[in-house]
Design a binder for these strands. Structure first.
Lengths: 208, 208
DNA sequence: ACGCCATGTGGACGGTGTTCACATGAGCGG
DNA sequence: CCGCTCATGTGAACACCGTCCACATGGCGT
């Protein structure tokens, strides 16, 4: 009788940490179905709590979505770093910096392809309120670091550094959207790979 | 007074062309408020007809949105062509081709900035069903033509032509999203202009 | 032990998309 | 000119959504 949804025998009358549970469930829903699939009612239903309970921990559906977006952004950099760790780097520092920049771009696109629902959610991260600074989403920081690395190793001239992050982010993000929701959605894997690599290589060539 | 579109005292018992009226109203709503603001009930309310009436002319809300998206795409190229017509082009053919390519990119971004609601709607254009070919949205065609022009005038090597459209579209579309919904939303006009021009110039440099 | 107050509940309101049986009238065949 | 037909529009209904309210509950500090 007392068996509840989360399989805990002693039902937490006051559910230990509802905020975390809501966020996690929102992430589950967003993963398959994107932000549109995240309804406060469905989230609370899955957690096993009344819809109104959510409002003790979250201002609105929008706020929950923004929190999920920030979490997705954080998770987005994980594969990027794994890729960098895996990369066999015996080459010189310059080549490594370039490869790192390439890896950030391809990692971004790969994430979008592997997790389209999450990717669509990630953009809602920056809230209109003075949430946080300008743009310190995790993937963006990764890009900044890779670009700075390029400058340090002489791959990128310091005079061409300013604004390069916007060009790179634009190309890579635009490519991801093109492949995930745009006219190229559903293309075969090989085509996708070819295009992704070309876009990344083209923009890197362009900013140098 | 008598012949009109919407405000005729003699109420059209069967409303001459509901489909067109729905589409136009959907465009109005999308213009301010984006796709989320397009509700079938509000559309029908504004047209002065019952909600169910819409279903005689449109499969779903989704279908109406897709129709609106296609219309927006068509309207998007108008400013692009005006810009090209305005451009004083005494320079040689090569410089003109390059300027045309630049104009397509900047026109795309300008449209996104001038009509963010419509821009957000435009992406829903390609339906999952084999709606139409791969990607013949009007702005994309404009880009293809500009690129071909570059090849013809020798600005772009034919060997570098394949796939260039994807790189360009990615950079420009990504930039538009960056400026409209992304972390740079709300930046001052000068910054916006600087970034837009840099992104366009960088990607053009990259594909050459 | 008691009471405060954060937390969770049930119900309500107004909004949405969508479908149904039904009404209406425009245009056509006779 | 009449009457039938069928596309078009209606009203009500269903299921869902976000959100707020007055109220219940019980964990925890005093």
């Amino acid at each position: 009788m007392s068996s509840d949804s989360t399989a805990e025998p002693s039902r937490p009358y006051h559910h230990g940490d509802l905020h975390a549970a809501l966020l996690e469930t929102a992430l589950d829903l967003a993963r398959e179905g994107g932000p549109a699939a995240v309804s406060l009612r469905e989230v609370t239903r899955r957690v096993g709590v009344s819809p109104a309970a959510a409002y003790r921990h979250v201002r609105d559906r929008e706020a929950l979505l923004r929190a999920a977006a920030r979490e997705v952004q954080a998770r987005m950099v994980v594969p990027m770093r794994e890729r960098r760790a895996r990369s066999d780097g015996p080459a010189d520092a310059a080549a490594r910096a370039l490869d790192r920049l390439r890896g950030v771009g391809l990692g971004y696109i790969d994430f979008a392809l592997a997790e389209p629902g999450w990717f669509a959610t990630a953009l809602l991260g920056a809230g209109d309120p003075p949430d946080e600074g300008p743009a310190h989403a995790a993937p963006f920081l990764e890009l900044l670091a890779a670009l700075d690395d390029c400058v340090e190793t002489g791959v990128l001239s310091p005079s061409r550094r300013p604004g390069a992050e916007f060009s790179c982010w634009s190309a890579v993000h635009g490519c991801a959207e093109l492949l995930v929701r745009g006219p190229l959605r559903g293309a075969d894997a090989e085509t996708v790979r070819t295009i992704a690599e070309k876009v990344v290589d083209d923009i890197i060539a362009g900013i140098r």
